[in-house]
C-alpha cells in the first residue's frame, strides 16, 4: 500500500545574520493512513521545523530541499513544490496542526465558536447556520461541557486544557487526513495531559486520522504511537515500530533517552542515567554523525562520514556505524 505521506531527504536551512543554521538534515519517513507516528527529540532537534517545512509555514529566507509526496485517495502531489494557493486549500482541510501554546494559537478577539466555523466556511460550502450547528457538535465531540453556550466564549475564558480541546475541535473540523500535534500537552498538568492524550486517541479511532505526535517525552509515546522517529541534531537517527524501539533501541541516543526516563518502579536511591554534554551547534553543516560528541561508542569512522540508514530489523532503521552495521543492507534512497 502506498503511504499517505512520503518524505524523502528533507533538509531545511535558515540563513541568518550570524550564518546559516542547518535545522533539518536529510530527514526521510513515511506515514501510513490512520497510524500514529511519534516524533521524539530534545529542543532544537528539528522536530517542529520538519513539520513547519512540510506545511510551508516558514519565513521566506528559508531553504527547503527534498520531496514530500502527499497521496490521499484520488490525487497525489509534492508538498514542497506546490503553489501557495494549492497549499492553502490543503492546510486546515487535509492536513491540520495544533501547537503547544493554545492561547497564542487562538484569536483572542473572536469567540471560540467563530474560530471553528471559519475553516468550515473556507474549505467546505457550509452556510452560517450549518457551520454553527457543526461547530457545536465538534465542541461536544472534544468533551467541552455545555457546547452551545461555550460557542460564544472567548479563549481567555477557557482553561489551558479546554483551549487545547478547542484547538483540536478546529483541527478536526474538516476531517483531515493528517493531524500534526506539536507538543500539545507540554504546557499542561499531568492529569490534564492524560485527558488530552485519551481524547486524541479516541478521535483518531473514530475518524481514522493519521497523527504525527511531536513530543520530547518518551513516556507519553509508549501508550500512543504505532511507530516512533527519534530526532537528534536535525536528523532522524532512528525510526522503529514502538515495541521494537523500547525493547531494543538501535541508536545510542535512543538508548540514552530511554535511560533518562525516571522509572516509577525504581528505588529513589537509584541514580538517573544522563547523557553527558549538550546538543550540537547547528551553525555548522553536518559532515559526520551529529551525536559523535556525546556518544560513548564513538570511533574514528563516526567523525569522517555521515552514517546512512541501516535496517537492523524489520521496520527499524538506524543511522549509526556502531555494532558492525555496515553488513546489513542499506535503506533504498
Amino acid at each position: 500500500m502506498k503511504p499517505l505521506l512520503s518524505v524523502r531527504n528533507l533538509s531545511t536551512r535558515f540563513d541568518t545574520f550570524d550564518g546559516s543554521v542547518y535545522a533539518v538534515n536529510d530527514v526521510s519517513f513515511d506515514l501510513k493512513a490512520g497510524e500514529t507516528l511519534a516524533v521524539v527529540g530534545e529542543s532544537g532537534s528539528g522536530k517542529s521545523v520538519t513539520m513547519l517545512s512540510l506545511l510551508g509555514l516558514l519565513p521566506r529566507s528559508t531553504w527547503v530541499t527534498g520531496s514530500a509526496i502527499f497521496a490521499p485517495e484520488g490525487f497525489e502531489l509534492d508538498l514542497l513544490s506546490v503553489s501557495k494557493a494549492e497549499l492553502n486549500s490543503l492546510r486546515g482541510n487535509k492536513i491540520s496542526i495544533i501547537f503547544q501554546d493554545a492561547l497564542r494559537s487562538l484569536n483572542p478577539v473572536m469567540t471560540v465558536g467563530e474560530q471553528i466555523t471559519e475553516s468550515l466556511i473556507t474549505h467546505h460550502q457550509y452556510n452560517k447556520n450549518g457551520a454553527h450547528k457543526r461547530a457545536v457538535e465538534l465542541l461536544e465531540m472534544v468533551g467541552i461541557a455545555q457546547p452551545d453556550k461555550r460557542y460564544y466564549a472567548y479563549p481567555h475564558m477557557f482553561s489551558g486544557g479546554m483551549r487545547q480541546r478547542a484547538m483540536i475541535a478546529i483541527a478536526i473540523s474538516c476531517t483531515p487526513d493528517i493531524l500534526i500535534a506539536d507538543e500539545p500537552t507540554t504546557a499542561l498538568d499531568v492529569t490534564i495531559q492524560a485527558q488530552i492524550v485519551e481524547l486524541t486517541r479516541r478521535l483518531q479511532q473514530d475518524l481514522g486520522i493519521a497523527v504525527i505526535w511531536i513530543t520530547h517525552d518518551l513516556g507519553v509515546v509508549a501508550g500512543l504511537a504505532d511507530r516512533v522517529m527519534v530526532m537528534y541534531g536535525g536528523t532522524g537517527v532512528e525510526i522503529a515500530p514502538v515495541d521494537l524501539l523500547y525493547e531494543n533501541p538501535g541508536h545510542p541516543y535512543t538508548a540514552g533517552l530511554l535511560g533518562a526516563i525516571p522509572s516509577i518502579a525504581g528505588s529513589s536511591a537509584d541514580r538517573l542515567v544522563s547523557i553527558e554534554g549538550a546538543p550540537p551547534d547547528l551553525f555548522q553543516e553536518p559532515r559526520h554523525c551529529q551525536f559523535a560528541w556525546r556518544c560513548r561508542y564513538v570511533f574514528d569512522r563516526c567523525w569522517k562520514e555521515k552514517p546512512p540508514g541501516y535496517i537492523i530489523s524489520p521496520g527499524q532503521v538506524v543511522k549509526c556505524f556502531y555494532d558492525g552495521r555496515e553488513k546489513t543492507p542499506r535503506v533504498e534512497e
Partner: peptide, 19 residues
C-alpha cells in the same frame, strides 16, 4: 497512575485513572 510507563506493552495492558 497518570505517569506514563515507558514500555508499550505495559502501557497497553494497564488501565490508567484519568481524573
Amino acid at each position: 497512575s497518570a505517569i506514563p510507563i515507558p514500555s508499550p506493552q505495559e502501557e497497553r495492558m494497564r488501565k490508567a485513572v484519568v481524573l
